[in-house]
Design a protein around this nucleic acid. Structure first.
Lengths: 338, 338
DNA sequence: CTGAAAGCGCTAACAG
DNA sequence: CTGTTAGCGCTTTCAG
């Protein structure tokens, strides 16, 4: 059997209570006794039994990092950055339990006893029931990446609007005027925010675009492909396309190259998300990077503040995105330049 | 306060002992009583307190999934596949705690009480001390991906030798005869195994290679770059190069294109690992894929068998690798063909 | 088949 | 500053 506080107590000639206090650095204990006990503890290679402590303190020291799913495929970078970000913050004070929400048949095992707090890395609205369940059970919770409607939660999301604004602004500064948009999934907040950034940039720079330059999409490869094909048949072909995410951008590039046109020489393409493949595709995609790791880190900090100090800020906080300039945009000479 | 077995006992008019037994499906209990108790429990939405159970059973229900580091950068795919593979197996019977070994200042908190078992996804020998520590503490342990020397552990590793054999065989079948090798880090088992696969394929097919076709390396980009430059100065330039991993292959491609030569037209390049970027580089790299997810899944199964049934197989098991054919190899017409 | 009692290792009133 | 005592929720002898 491993060593307990009682063993230490016997050796030190004190009660196990005193040992407990000494080891928890209580101010009530005589400094000398305390030091003596701590020396004995470490010489015995004592490690506290977390189960016992958890039982009496009613804390598990477990933090859950939950993804919408672990089976989608685009999540590798996400997972990596999120795990890294959170682990950096919690050090070895907590255990980070990583899981896909869809791993659970029911949420029975998700409770205050088993989790001191929950971080949900939300990639779609499919995890809404989980979020509502956790809220109802009053488990400390923070939701990252997706803006949550309906329930009031701590919420950290990328600033989609200003990200979209900046990448469209970049297109304009490269001389583009005929800039089309492939929109995201209808009803998603991010779809709307990215659209607003696009609109605003065009307005601020006084860029007029022809009708039919806005094509609906679904945030997936196929709709990017289909949407781009529609744009290519437009009587006034755009010189640049803002795709609402990188998946759609990949689909768009495919549609373009299939018609024996070239990116960026014939049409410039930009995306949003900066997925792992985006830097390695040909041409490497100019896009907007979401601060997943930073968000995760800050999410962990806020969650701990909530758990440990009862500090709450149930508002939505926006995180800055970053323009990643690569090779999929060309510079256009404006008419009056040549 | 949440509901405990005592609450259920009161409602059912039995002792809490009986409730405990009923809920654990003990054969000692009258089927009718059992069913009645279970109904009450679920109507009360009872969830067991894991801390209490852990305390008395001396099990934590925590499994650790430890990576050498979480800060290296090439780990995203690894992490993803490993987490997925293990989670698929353990369902919600265990908590999967994901962490980088280098997150720990000391291993004090790693013990039998806190972890029922450990899965180490080893990417370098740097985690050897951790492995030895866990072994010494007699924590159930399985090491994945790297063959461990020194200590006897359950060990699952990719079959590097046959993977190397197959990719070199593929080169030979595409008509290549002048096939060079960029070797991995000296002293690593995988370096040796991959070299052996290469040697054996050449021998089996009776391919003779000039001296100087074997260049040492370090498994990194730089040594791939430097090694390839050495090969390019060889009087009899190879038509194909087997790089001992994908990082080195990327370095090699860079060296080749810098000399205004083309891959695969002038020189074919193959790698090993199938990193995430490998499919997206230009040209997409033909390489050998390691079965990370399958290994993780099997690793979890074996670890659980050990924990729950005390089944041990402390031997090394090899997992099949998979040849991934992409675009970095060209077919050569043999002399007598034209 | 069921219950009483003990105890896992720890923390926290309470009393000195 | 230290010790006594109780109890967290659960499982497990041991008796019936």
């Amino acid at each position: 059997m491993s060593v307990t506080i009682k063993d230490i107590a016997k050796l030190a000639g004190v009660s196990h209570t005193t040992v407990s206090r000494a080891l928890n650095d209580s101010p009530l204990i005589n400094p000398e006794t305390k030091e003596r006990i701590q020396r004995i503890a470490s010489s015995l290679n004592y490690t506290p039994n977390f189960s016992a402590r958890s039982l009496v303190l009613d804390r598990s020291y477990n933090l859950g990092l939950f993804f919408s799913t672990l089976h989608s495929g685009t999540t590798a970078g996400f997972l990596y950055e999120a795990v890294k970000g959170v682990n950096d913050v919690i050090k070895d004070r907590y255990n980070l339990i990583v899981r896909g929400i869809d791993d659970y048949k029911d949420f029975h095992n998700i409770n205050r006893k088993s989790f001191d707090g929950l971080i949900v890395m939300s990639q779609s609205a499919s995890d809404q029931p989980f979020i509502e369940y956790a809220t109802e059970k009053e488990i400390p919770l923070i939701v990252l990446n997706r803006q949550v409607d309906g329930v009031q939660v701590m919420n950290l999301v990328p600033d989609d609007k200003s990200g979209a604004y900046r990448v469209v602004e970049y297109l304009i500064r490269q001389g583009h005027r005929r800039i089309a948009i492939l929109e995201g999934k209808p009803g998603f907040k991010s779809t709307q925010a990215r659209r607003e950034g696009y609109d605003e940039a065009l307005r601020d720079y006084g860029v007029q675009i022809p009708g039919g330059y806005s094509v609906p999409g679904e945030y997936d490869l196929e709709s990017g492909y289909a949407g781009m094909n529609r744009l290519l048949e437009h009587p006034v072909r755009p010189t640049a396309v803002f795709c609402s995410n990188d998946d759609m951008a990949l689909g768009a590039v495919k549609a373009i190259t299939q018609r024996r046109l070239k990116v960026p020489e014939d049409i410039s393409v930009v995306g949003f998300d900066d997925l792992l493949f985006s830097g390695f595709m040909t041409p490497a995609l100019t896009t907007v990077r979401r601060p997943i790791e930073a968000m995760s880190r800050e999410g962990a900090i806020r969650l701990l503040a909530f758990i440990e100090k009862k500090q709450v800020e149930k508002d939505t906080v926006y995180f800055h995105t970053e323009l990643v300039i690569r090779e999929s945009v060309t510079t256009i000479q404006e008419a009056n330049d040549q």
